[in-house]
Amino acid sequence: MAGIEPEEQLKELASTLSSIEQVLDLDTMRRDIAELREQSADPDLWSDQERAQAVTRRLSYLESELNRVEGLRQRLEDAATLYEMAREMDDADTRTEADEELAALHKAVQQLEVRTLMSGDYDAREALVTINAQAGGVDAADWAQQLQRMYLRWAERHGYPTEVYDTSYAEEAGIKSTTFAVKAPYAYGTLRGEHGTHRLIRISPFDNQGRRQTSFAGLDVVPVVEQSDHVEIDESELRIDVYRSSGPGGQGVNTTDSAVRITHLPSGIVVSCQNERSQLQNKATAMNVLQAKLLERKRKEEAEELSALRGEGTTSWGTQIRNYVLHPFKIVKDLRTGVEVGNTSAVLDGDIDEFIEAEIRWLRQQESA
């Protein structure tokens, strides 16, 4: 917005924020918060741990969103006052402070605007993320583990609770696969664009000749199922195996056959859970993961059928989506949106919001085209 007076920029931002407030429906948000506060004050709520945690997570999220919007509105008013003070006092330092706040407000409003683009049927759900090592041997297993850490750190940066359900460790280093939940509203809508193949290029730390290695890991993101979802699962079509939980070693490795692996024979989908001490708890969690994956499979099949009836081509996001290059230069580039970041260390430490925000906009364009 170079060349536009700051006062006009603030007016445009205020107008954009008003549109965002309408989409988010702040009055409904306030009513929901009041209802959830009433539920959370009920002493009987915690007799159902799962429901209690869902209520408190939803309440915390809505309060945070409301504070975020109201805080931005106040910051816009304060910025206008700051510019007025700078003009009246003819103070360069105050003007610089106001300019810095204006730039920060542009970014904050754009980030909030992205939230309004998540209007899909399942976008408001929590997310289940599965990462699998693909081509590249031990480097791919190491890369899959780095990706797991990247997403867990991203969630931690935002204060989103996570729970790792299963991790299958590779023999030499890294992991073969992992499944974890991101337990925050709109986690699925936020992360669904990350679905696909992630490619790493680097000097392999496992090659004694120091050669460059390309390795791949696949990411699958599905929405968590809710009670209103209907996923028919025939028990006769399941193979259920129990085994001893595995890990990289140490006292945390279980000594009983509590881990559960469920194979859905018609689809070939395999899910596992080993994070609970009880075999029954692990089975229940694994069934929830299976339901989520079958629901997503059903949703995609219905979307493809609808596209075929309309004579449209279907768009697949399950292909290579992003390159992480650590040698001979350092850059992370998204192949769909064109977003590039040179600070690879920050990206691998969970600083991926720039990629996520761009792909949410990109997905919205693809779906509305």
Rank of each mutant, 00 (worst) to 15 (best):
Q145K: 09
Y169L: 10
T130F: 03
A170Y: 01
G174Q: 08
Q145E: 15
A173T: 08
G210A: 13
V114K: 00
E171K: 10
W143R: 03
S177A: 12
T178C: 15
Q209S: 14
G137D: 04
E101C: 05
Y122T: 00
I175H: 11
A103Q: 13
G196M: 02
V164A: 12
L191D: 00
G218H: 01
T96L: 13
Y151I: 02
R202H: 12
A103D: 13
Q111H: 11
F206Q: 14
L219M: 13
R192Y: 07
S168T: 04
I131A: 11
E194R: 06
V138G: 06
F216I: 11
R212M: 09
T178G: 15
A92G: 05
F180Y: 15
D207A: 00
L102F: 07
S204C: 12
T179N: 08
T214K: 11
L219D: 01
G193M: 06
N208A: 15
V138Q: 12
R125D: 00
G196K: 01
T167P: 10
A124Y: 12
T178A: 15
F180P: 14
H106G: 10
A187Y: 09
Q209M: 06
G196D: 04
T167H: 13
G210N: 14
L105D: 02
Y165S: 11
K176Q: 14
A155C: 12
R211V: 05
T167G: 13
T162V: 13
R199D: 07
S119P: 00
T178S: 15
A217D: 01
T179A: 13
R192D: 01
A217L: 06
Y188W: 11
A108Y: 02
T130D: 08
Y169F: 14
E97Y: 00
D90F: 01
T197L: 09
H195C: 14
A173G: 03
G137A: 03
A144W: 05
A173S: 12
H106Q: 10
D220E: 12
A187T: 03
G136H: 05
Y188R: 01
V164P: 07
D139L: 05
N132Y: 03
Y160Q: 07
R157H: 15
Q134N: 09
T116L: 03
E97P: 00
E97K: 03
D121W: 00
F180T: 07
P185G: 02
L128T: 10
P205H: 08
G218W: 00
A173M: 03
T197V: 15
F180K: 05
D207H: 01
Q110N: 10
T96S: 14
L152Y: 12
D123H: 08
W143K: 03
A133V: 05
L102W: 07
Q146W: 09
V182Q: 04
K183L: 15
P185Q: 01
G136E: 07
H106D: 08
A103I: 08
K183W: 04
S119N: 11
E171Y: 08
Q148H: 11
Q110D: 14
A98G: 10
T214W: 06
A108T: 07
A187C: 05
S168F: 01
